[in-house]
């Protein structure tokens, strides 16, 4: 697979480390009353989409950026690649903004 890195252009996916669903950015509030449940869901439950999937890739053998890649799990087509740092900052500025479109 080829990941079109937003800063570096196309790179072989073999340079990257895969973590999983981009929902791992949405770490719950540790002081919320239902923190235990929220952390359980955050850590263990997945949409596991058959189709468009936003996921975290780390450019370990590259620029060390964490990326959010939007990829179709049925075809492997990649439609969007973002810097996770940018997405995380945007989310912090506006918690309602999960980065998901629509």
């Amino acid at each position: 697979m080829i990941i079109n890195h937003p800063l570096l252009g196309p790179r072989d996916a073999a340079e990257f480390y895969y973590l999983g669903d981009a929902s791992l950015l949405d770490r719950p509030d540790w002081q919320a009353p239902d923190a235990a449940d929220k952390f359980y869901e955050y850590q263990y439950l997945r949409d596991n989409a058959a189709g468009e999937h936003r996921e975290l890739w780390y450019h370990e053998q590259g620029d060390r950026s964490w990326l959010i890649v939007t990829r179709d799990t049925l075809t492997h087509d990649i439609t969007k690649v973002e810097l996770a740092h940018d997405v995380a900052l945007a989310k912090q500025a506006d918690p309602a903004n999960t980065g998901r479109e629509g």
């Binding site: 999983g20 669903d21 263990y44 439950l45 997945r46 949409d47 596991n48 989409a49 058959a50």
Partner: peptide
């Protein structure tokens, strides 16, 4: 292999990735 897809039809999220 398809657990996620099938159980989603019952509204369930699973501790599983495909």
């Amino acid at each position: 292999g398809s657990s996620g897809r099938v159980m989603a039809q019952a509204g369930m999220r699973l501790p599983i990735e495909s």
